[in-house]
Design a protein around this nucleic acid. Structure first.
Lengths: 133, 133
DNA sequence: CCGAATCCCCGCGGATACTG
DNA sequence: CAGTATCCGCGGGGATTCGG
């Protein structure tokens, strides 16, 4: 492992241990089961709590609340309460949220376009299981 | 939630439930704690098992083996055994692995460049804790 | 050197019931 | 409507030991 490569990695990642690596630090928060889906749901404009619940077909109320809180904590979305009766709460992407989604978009598209590739690889691997090692 | 938006989402994601959504399906496999780091380690060329272990400072042997197996199963990397004494095993990116890393690169750069933003947001949130809800 | 097997901890995430 | 609280199972992931 040559030093030049190590340097490039250092420049790209900042560090490699989980505590101090910015990339792993930031990404660990959006790797939840619902984060991407919720950010995408907000990409078109603000949504109410109940709208998001309808959008994510099988999320539990607990996880919806928790995911939204996490995203809010990291500054990807905002939360606005309208003191009506009954209460009304609106979530919206921040600047950071939009900019993150833009970067993320490439990965989303890749995943959609290469799904079959991954599936084929899995089947091939599973059928060869145990006879090459 | 207007129908036009729903349609765009359908086009982008294929589906929204976890079972049939290609994006979530594919991404769930690379969201592991070490996957990204290992793929990046291989981006420069093939590496031996022990090299990867040295590269990832705090991975356990168990998780190194497991992560590599998972990545291999999904077709991101290959594994070549040289029947020497002692044995020697080399891992390398496939075409799919390279192409995936390319898409992923945008996110890595975003995370590095916006780390401080996320950190500030977290601190702000934590210090306001409980007084706005 | 590379990996399989075993044991165990912990946090994500689901189900359900209760509040303002 | 928009949460909170509680209980609980499952699987990711670490430590350690054994094998080829």
């Amino acid at each position: 492992m040559d030093k030049l490569f190590q340097d490039r990695m250092e420049t790209l990642l900042g560090a490699r241990d989980i505590e101090s690596c910015p990339v792993r630090d930031v990404l660990s928060r959006v790797s939840g089961k619902w984060s991407t889906l919720l950010l995408l749901a907000l990409s078109d404009g603000p949504r109410r709590f109940s709208e998001l619940k309808r959008f994510a077909p099988d999320i539990s109320q607990r996880m919806l609340t928790k995911s939204l809180t996490d995203l809010r904590r990291d500054g990807y979305i905002t939360r606005t309460v309208y003191p009506t009766q009954p209460p009304q709460v609106e979530y919206a992407l921040t600047e950071a949220g939009h900019s993150f989604l833009e970067a993320w978009h490439g990965v989303v598209v890749w995943a959609r376009d290469n799904r079959h590739l991954v599936h084929e690889a899995r089947q091939r691997f599973d059928s060869e299981e145990g006879q090459d090692r």
